[in-house]
Design a protein around this nucleic acid. Structure first.
Length: 309
RNA sequence: CGCGGGGUGGAGCAGCGGCAGCUCGCGUGGCUCAUAACCACGAGGCCGGCGGUUCGAGUCCGCCCCCCGCAA
């Protein structure tokens, strides 16, 4: 008996806020002969917008002639979802909880690719959380989706060592690629009933609550290392913010340097032609920033137009 | 009709009715053991576009185009 290789895909593959994706998971499934019956994403808000960033996966669906279902809610569309007769669901960055009734329509349930070493970093910001806490490693987990957030039993887990300098985008890319690679490896075993998922140790679970915009304002009484991690983790969204002489700025990237200074934490100053700011334990050089109303530019360029002191 | 900021030499900005300027970069020459070097000279602008007001418009008025931030 040969099982069908029909899959229903849930999610947009944006593993972190403010990143772009080349949708590696759905691409790789297709390359390996699986048939994506449809791609399901939560309906985009209809609020008026100066510029909306279209989902990469929507463009991919169009290019491949795959049906894209933008749904406000899954339950009212249960029959529709059933009609595809998919063997299994695959979910990556869906952004909403999936009701048990939907999970149950698939003989093999829904497989969730989660970019962390579960049970660590359950929730919607695993990538940001790992950067913020400066962890040495992270990874990708494949689990059987259950109703409770990120609590399903694990099929597979792979560790990724970190240098500590990865950007959010870079981590999202690497974990997305790794996740798709593992999925291709493991999916045949799941569909062949050769792999049983192992329960997570719920006692060790950590859960990250989503980021809030109020966290975006940099607090220079923190250490320079913590501030740099924040800037990296918040890049894209919610973005790290501050102000120079009342001029609001977004700090895109920065690095720390040794040396002391007599500036108070939070005070910006020019240092050898570069834009610097004092922290509680050192100096940050602002590499890239966005002034209000302006485009992203280097700290040096900022200094040329608006001299401090 | 969502809210707001902005388009001025290659980069970043100032100028807001009367000869288009500053910092940097670039070129040439000079100076220094050396420096984010320094000094002198120089090139480089249809001031986003179209129309209007005016003796005179980057500058004021109207419309349009483009960029950016917020609103996940």
């Amino acid at each position: 008996m040969k099982k069908s290789n029909k899959i229903l895909f849930f999610g947009n593959e944006r593993l972190a806020t403010g990143v772009v994706t080349n949708t590696p998971i759905v691409r790789s499934l297709i390359e390996h002969g699986y048939i994506i019956e449809a791609i399901v994403v939560p309906a985009s808000k209809t609020s008026p917008s100066r510029k909306t960033r279209p989902l990469e996966i929507a463009a991919f669906a169009k290019e491949q002639g795959i049906e894209l279902l933008e749904l406000n809610a899954l339950l009212p569309n249960l029959e529709r979802l059933k009609s595809f007769n998919a063997e299994v669901g695959v979910l990556a960055a869906f952004g909403k909880l999936v009701p048990q009734e939907v999970i149950d329509i698939f003989p093999y349930g829904i497989i969730n690719i989660h970019p962390s070493l579960l049970p660590l970093h359950r929730g919607t910001i695993p990538i940001e959380a790992v950067i913020l806490s400066g962890e040495k490693q992270t990874g990708v987990s494949l689990m059987k989706l259950v109703k409770q957030m990120d609590a399903g039993p694990l099929y597979d887990q792979t560790v990724l060592s970190l240098s500590g300098n990865e950007s959010k985008q870079e981590l999202a890319d690497r974990l997305g690629a790794l996740g798709s690679e593992r999925l291709i490896k493991v999916l045949p075993q799941i569909l062949g009933d050769q792999l049983k998922p192992k329960p997570q140790n719920g006692n060790q679970a950590t859960y990250d609550s989503r980021l809030h915009q109020s966290q975006a304002v940099l607090d220079f009484s923190k250490s320079k290392d913590a501030l740099i991690r924040e800037i990296r983790a918040f890049k894209g969204w919610p973005r790290s913010r501050s102000a120079i002489n009342g001029d609001p700025i977004i700090i895109v990237s920065a690095h720390s340097i040794g040396g002391s200074n007599d500036a108070r934490p939070g005070e910006f100053f020019a240092r050898e032609g570069e834009l610097a700011v004092a922290t509680s334990d050192g100096i940050l050089i602002i590499d890239r920033l966005i002034p209000s109303g302006g485009k992203e530019m280097s700290g040096n360029d900022y200094l040329r137009g608006r001299r401090l002191n």
